[in-house]
C-alpha cells in the first residue's frame, strides 16, 4: 500500500540495538534506569555546549553499535538530526563516525522521522545496518530559541525544559526476537494558530491528534490494539489538549496513552510542564520502551513524536508555530 503518507514495511525491519546518553540533570529522570550513559558535566567535559551536544550523539551511536559488536564502518547509513541552527552537532558527529549521512530535521519529531527513513532504506534493500538518532542539549538549544541560560526570565507553568539527551537506534533487516517496525505515518505540518513559544505543547497537540487519526484510519487499526501509545514531548498542557482532541475522534479510553515529555522528569515542578527537545522522545523510546518490548511487556506500541517547527526568527516576525507529528508502530513477535 502506497498512499498519503501511510507507510507499511512488509519485511518488518528490526531495531537491533539502541544507545541512550543523557546529561547531569537527566539523572533525575523517571527513565534514567534505562540510559546507557550519563555525564556529570553538561558539556561532556568539552569546551562548548555544541561540542558536548555532538559528543552526546556520538556516544549514543557508538554504544548502540558496540552492543551488536559493530564499528561505524559496518553501517550503511546514518540518519540523524538536532535543533541547533544548521544541525552542526549532528554533522560534526557524522564527520567523526564517517557513516554516509542524511541530516534530518523534524524538530523534536526527528527521533521518529529518522527511524522511519532508516526503516525505508532497509525495506528497500539498500541498507543492512542504518543508524537513526536525534539529540538535544539544554544550553545549546535554549540559548538559541529562548534566552541566555543565566537570564532571569520567569517561566510559566506551560513552559517545557529542553533535555540534554541523545538516542540512537540501529536498524537492520528483520531478526527474530527483536522489536520490529511494521507501519508508520508521516505527519502533515499543522498550524492551529498558536504563537506562544513558551507553550509548545498546545501548538503541537493538534499535529499529534491528526497523525494518530490518520494512522488509525489509514491502517485500519484502533487505539485499543496497542499496549502503549506514546506521544513525544507534549508535556502536561499539550497532553491534556491532545486528549481533548482525541476524544472528538471518538476515543475515550486513555489507559494506554502516555507522553514521554510529561513523564520525563517525574512530577518535579522545577521543570514546569515537562521535558521537550529532540533528545526527549529518542531517549525514552530507545531506552524504556525498547527494553520493555524486548522483555515482551509490550507487544505492540505506537510512538508519535511531536515537533514544533518554529525558529527564533519566525517567532519574532509574529508568525504562528507550524507543528509536525510522525508515527511509527513497533511490534514484538
Amino acid at each position: 500500500m502506497v498512499m498519503k503518507g501511510l507507510l507499511t514495511f512488509p519485511s518488518t525491519p528490526s531495531i537491533v540495538a539502541t544507545g541512550v546518553t543523557a546529561g547531569p540533570l537527566e539523572k533525575k529522570s523517571a527513565f534514567q534506569a534505562g540510559f546507557d550513559k550519563t555525564y556529570d558535566d553538561e558539556r561532556c567535559g568539552l569546551k562548548t555546549n555544541e561540542q558536548g551536544h555532538s559528543k552526546l550523539m556520538e556516544d549514543a551511536c557508538m554504544i548502540a553499535l558496540s552492543k551488536i559488536d559493530k564499528v561505524p564502518s559496518d553501517a550503511d547509513f546514518l540518519v540523524a538530526g538536532d535543533l541547533v541552527n544548521q544541525m552542526t552537532p549532528s554533522s560534526f558527529f557524522a564527520t567523526t563516525v564517517g557513516i554516509p549521512y542524511l541530516g534530518m530535521f523534524s524538530a523534536c519529531a526527528t527521533s521518529v522521522s529518522s527511524l522511519l527513513t532508516a526503516a525505508l532504506l532497509t525495506e528497500a534493500g539498500m541498507s543492512k545496518l542504518a543508524i537513526a538518532g536525534s539529540s538535544s542539549q539544554h544550553n545549546a538549544v535554549e540559548r538559541q530559541f529562548r534566552y541566555p541560560i543565566e537570564y532571569g526570565a520567569q517561566k510559566g507553568a506551560a513552559t517545557q525544559w529542553t533535555v540534554t539527551a541523545a538516542g540512537a537506534a540501529a536498524v537492520a533487516p528483520y531478526q527474530k526476537g527483536l522489536p520490529s517496525i511494521e507501519r508508520g505515518t508521516v505527519g502533515r505540518a499543522i498550524d492551529m494558530g498558536m504563537s506562544d513559544p513558551l507553550n509548545m505543547g498546545a501548538a503541537m497537540a493538534p499535529a499529534a491528534a491528526d497523525t494518530l487519526k490518520r494512522h488509525l484510519e489509514g491502517h485500519g487499526a484502533s487505539a485499543s490494539d496497542y499496549d502503549l501509545i506514546m506521544t513525544g514531548d507534549l508535556a502536561t498542557v499539550g497532553f491534556s489538549l491532545f486528549k481533548e482532541l482525541v476524544k472528538n475522534q471518538g476515543i475515550t479510553e486513555f489507559e494506554n496513552f502516555s507522553d514521554a515529555g510529561m513523564e520525563f522528569y517525574g512530577n518535579n515542578p522545577d521543570f514546569k510542564a515537562g521535558a521537550s527537545g529532540a533528545g526527549c522522545s529518542a531517549a525514552v523510546y530507545f531506552s524504556e520502551v525498547y527494553q520493555k518490548m524486548k522483555d515482551k511487556e509490550y507487544k505492540k506500541v505506537l510512538l508519535i513524536a511531536t515537533g514544533a517547527l518554529l525558529s527564533p526568527l519566525s517567532f519574532q516576525q509574529g508568525e504562528t508555530i507550524p507543528c509536525i507529528a510522525h508515527a511509527v508502530e513497533l511490534t514484538m513477535k
Binding site: L25, N139, I149
Partner: peptide
C-alpha cells in the same frame, strides 16, 4: 570568570 550552567 563565569560560564552559563543549565541548572534549575
Amino acid at each position: 570568570i563565569f560560564k552559563p550552567k543549565g541548572s534549575v
